[in-house]
Design a binder for these strands. Structure first.
Lengths: 341, 341
DNA sequence: GGTACGAATCGAACCGGTTCGACAATGATG
DNA sequence: CATCATTGTCGAACCGGTTCGATTCGTACC
């Protein structure tokens, strides 16, 4: 393996001079720098990451902790992951992906062994057991998902309260008076996925304000059940003219449910979902939806995290709490109600 | 930060003794070892990963190189990724996920900076430009996907030739005489995804052998088109009684296509797909399918890779080429043909 | 014309582990 | 009882970078 010593020797300078020529941390005369760079090129030198990490206490690696749970629709998680890895790379960092079930343990392991410069947490729960560990860790962390206590963290999430209102308003503005909301499975809520409640409560409150009827259901936690359940909801509320879905699995199942019933959106029923644009494209989902902005959230979390890492303790960067306002991708699945079904 | 020096001091021994007590590479008396372990516990010592990597030339990290392309159905890739990360962790390794478009560059970067002990390549193409780099790298590599030349590599893939035959045989054995095969988009083939051809050619050859008719199509590369295309295939071949899908996107779109036409599997048409069990569960896909064994392939690749890393140069581990025989998950979407449609 | 200063470079120390060689104590062997 | 091997421990060197302090040289300044 070629080391910086080899480069120094080839360029006829000391190791420290070679180092300064490469890092630019001290001024080096142009001819010397050129010789060093030429030697690097010729020998094909690349710094040893371990050695550099040891000397500088910087690894240029971020730890990405996620959970991939079936009932929260694992495939949708991929968009967050890719947002993180792509942005990290653009900023000069690599990403260590940890899918370990025991997130607390993983966090401790990576933190105390100094394998990463910072953490990105996905799927953060209301009372997430990883947060106390993260607080105590010397590395900073940013997260996607809104915990109960955000103090001391950089937090990014979709604004689910505004999303719930927006869903209801969109349909009520069109003239709908009765609708059904299908949330994520209740398991998700129990586990701390408070976003489900935030959206549902906001939708319910707004429906009440506007004097319309909203029926709320949790989706089935076993996926094969979800189509059957959708039929059940439609059977139970024959006069409902709108369907709100905060559940990717239900959205994926809906097209066949509708066609089985001979219904067409928006002619017979109006539909608004909440999932990412990529997700919609991948599954040819024809429904108007609030974009969950997965990629964007991942990227923002990384940008903030890197800013904090590189800012060091010098600049006291204030902690941020960014709730992205919901944006609707109109795919034409909403319209004024034709009549009660 | 607490170092091994602190531990040694607390235990009243030298640094080297502390190291030997922890690694077990030399015999240490029981009382001394106990004192060292007690000190570790008390001080909360964890070895610094960078320093250890520098000293031992082992990072305990694997590099995972993947591509997430829309037309190859990115969500399905997640199953491979999770198979890799979970198995790696079980064997004591962490996983650096690289989604970089430029896989060659990423490979060089991670290899020459000694950030990882080995590589797992997903989505390997017929003539993959990463393979020459991998051959020259000092770290070993294992892959999922079958390149033209496998010499010098550990290769794992589903047996797509046997899969093509199995699909055809399954339906012909039931009495079907005419069927339609929908492959991945042609883009995938052009990019080197030879598995598409391997399955299609094998299916075609077997159909000919058995004297039945097989119509072959590539799916649309833009997903919204795929449902329309499926309708087109069914319109074009009204007497076909079987549908073979080597295309996750088409499988996802099929339920609504069928119900729009008032068809039910297997009553009106028999369907066999090729996708993972997790994928089927997630999307409530009701079709009998060959399991793509994504998780299993990822795990096998990691097991072999780690064996090679830890075997060192001592044991000359032979390179393996494992093609997993296709297994059918019967979800009841095949039956003898009722009649021509 | 002496002094002060900045630029350019070098040698040595350091980061935190592992590992080699030496050495003392112990026990077994002839 | 001298010898030899074995066991347990220590000090020092090493892995490959970065960084601090000191030194040299040339130039600007008063």
């Amino acid at each position: 393996m070629v080391t910086i010593g080899d480069v120094a020797k080839a360029a006829g300078v000391s190791r420290s001079t070679a180092s300064y020529a490469l890092t630019g941390k001290r001024s080096i005369s142009t001819p010397v720098r050129q010789r060093v760079l030429a030697a690097v090129e010729e020998l094909g030198y690349t710094p040893n990451a371990g050695a550099r990490a040891l000397a500088t206490s910087e690894t240029k690696v971020l730890g990405l902790l996620s959970r991939f749970l079936d009932d929260e629709f694992a495939p949708a998680m991929l968009q967050y992951v890719l947002g993180v890895t792509n942005e990290a790379r653009a900023l000069g960092y690599d990403t260590l992906l940890v899918s370990e079930e025991d997130g607390v343990h993983a966090l401790q392991r990576l933190s105390s062994s100094r394998m990463v410069d910072g953490f990105v947490l996905l799927n953060v729960a209301e009372h997430d057991d990883r947060l106390p560990i993260l607080s105590a860790a010397p590395q900073p962390g940013a997260m996607v998902g809104l915990p109960a206590d955000t103090s001391g963290f950089d937090v990014f999430d979709l604004d689910f309260v505004a999303s719930g209102r927006l869903m209801v308003d969109s349909l009520v503005d069109l003239g709908h008076r009765e609708m059904v909301l299908v949330s994520q499975p209740e398991d998700v809520v129990v586990r701390g996925g408070a976003y489900v409640w935030r959206l549902a409560n906001a939708a319910r409150a707004r429906a009440e304000e506007r004097g319309v009827v909203l029926h709320h259901y949790f989706g089935a936690s076993s996926q094969p059940q979800i189509g059957t359940d959708l039929h059940g909801y439609l059977d139970a509320h024959p006069t409902a003219t709108g369907l709100l879905l905060n559940n990717e699995g239900a959205a994926a199942a809906l097209p066949s449910v509708l066609s089985a019933r001979g219904l067409h959106a928006p002619h017979d029923i109006s539909v608004i979902g909440r999932y990412s644009t990529d997700f919609a494209r991948t599954f040819s989902l024809p429904f108007t939806a609030i974009d969950s902005a997965a990629d964007e959230l991942g990227r923002r979390a990384v940008r903030q995290l890197v800013a904090r890492i590189e800012g060091g303790a010098t600049t006291a960067l204030p902690h941020v709490l960014e709730l992205i306002p919901p944006a609707i991708d109109d795919r034409g699945s909403t319209a004024p109600p034709r009549k009660a079904l």
